[in-house]
Structure formats: structure tokens, C-alpha cells
């Protein structure tokens, strides 16, 4: 793939990535921090809902659904 994956929402089911930083403020930032999306956290995308949005991610042992527009604000260091 030519385009480099940078955001959490770009992960396809089955792919895994490492969090770099969150680029958003306010409630959503706190939410994302609460569920453990801090630097170097490993995230696996495990599926999409029937409507394609939100997607489900495995984060620190819990499966959490995040909407695309919110997942866009999570930047990834690397995709494994």
C-alpha cells in the first residue's frame, strides 16, 4: 500500500498498531486516555460493525468500539 497509515481509523480488521499521541481535546481526549490509549500502547483492530462504523479495537485486554471520526484523532507510530 502506498499511502502510509497514520491514524487508528486506518487500521483494517486484523491489523495492529502502536499509539503515538492523541490529537484532540476535551471529553473525548479524557475518554481515550481512560481506556488506556497512551504512548506505546498496542492496539489491534478486531472488526467493523455492520454499518462499517464504529470499529472494535482490542486495547489492554478490553474490546472497545470507537467511531471513525474519533479514531481519526489517534495517531499511530507504527503498524505491525
Amino acid at each position: 500500500m502506498k499511502q502510509q497509515i497514520k491514524h487508528l481509523c486506518d487500521l483494517r480488521p486484523g491489523e495492529r498498531g502502536v499509539v503515538d499521541y492523541i490529537h484532540i481535546s476535551g471529553d473525548m481526549r479524557r475518554r481515550l486516555l481512560d481506556i488506556g490509549l497512551v504512548e506505546n500502547t498496542e492496539v489491534i483492530c478486531i472488526g467493523e460493525s455492520p454499518g462499517r462504523d464504529p470499529s472494535a479495537y482490542l486495547i489492554r485486554g478490553a474490546v472497545i468500539a470507537i467511531r471513525k471520526k474519533d479514531a481519526k484523532s489517534v495517531f499511530l507510530k507504527a503498524v505491525l
Binding site: 471529553d27 481515550l32 472497545i64 468500539a65
Partner: peptide, 11 residues
């Protein structure tokens, strides 16, 4: 506009 939303899918 919709606000922050995360939903846990428990085992």
C-alpha cells in the same frame, strides 16, 4: 454534534 463515545464490548 455527537459527543465523545466509546463503548466496551464485554466478553
Amino acid at each position: 454534534t455527537p459527543s465523545a463515545f466509546t463503548l466496551e464490548l464485554p466478553p
